[in-house]
């Protein structure tokens, strides 16, 4: 299972890098979102899967899934959501101010 997941994560990382290398601001934000998806899945995968129960003690199972990476991912999801939301509004402001979403037109002045 883990090997399949790792291949999937490689694909997601490739796609996100490709998106971030493109010219459109919206696509760069897409790339960042994909990158955080990839990172979350990587966190989950590398802790290893067992065929245990969900980490709820009420299940009274003999084997549980590892609860620690889940807690870490939960934190990461919320943080990346905050950052993405901010980035989106920033992208929106950029559109309003410059009427373009082309990265090569958003280069700043020569003096900067």
């Amino acid at each position: 299972m883990e090997l399949l997941m790792i291949i999937l994560i490689g694909i997601i990382f490739s796609v996100s890098t490709y998106l971030m290398l493109t010219n459109s601001l919206l696509r760069v934000i897409f790339g960042i979102v994909m990158l955080s998806h990839g990172a979350h899945l990587l966190l989950l995968t590398l802790s290893g899967f067992n065929d245990g129960a969900p980490p709820l003690l009420g299940e009274e199972a003999s084997v549980y899934m590892d609860p620690l990476p889940q807690a870490l991912i939960l934190t990461a999801i919320v943080i990346s959501f905050g950052v993405t939301a901010f980035l989106l509004v920033l992208g929106y402001r950029t559109y309003r101010a410059h009427e373009t979403d082309k990265m090569d037109q958003l280069r700043g002045n020569a003096d900067e």
């Binding site: 790792i6 994560i9 694909i11 490709y18 459109s24 990839g38 590398l46």
Partner: peptide, 26 residues
């Protein structure tokens, strides 16, 4: 406008990034 030009270099870079992540993950 939304779909930018295709670049080989970008493709190579992104595939190598994915490959690196996968190899290190394994």
């Amino acid at each position: 406008d939304f779909k930018p030009k295709f670049r080989w270099l970008n493709l190579v870079i992104s595939i190598s990034v994915g490959l690196t992540v996968s190899l290190i993950g394994i």
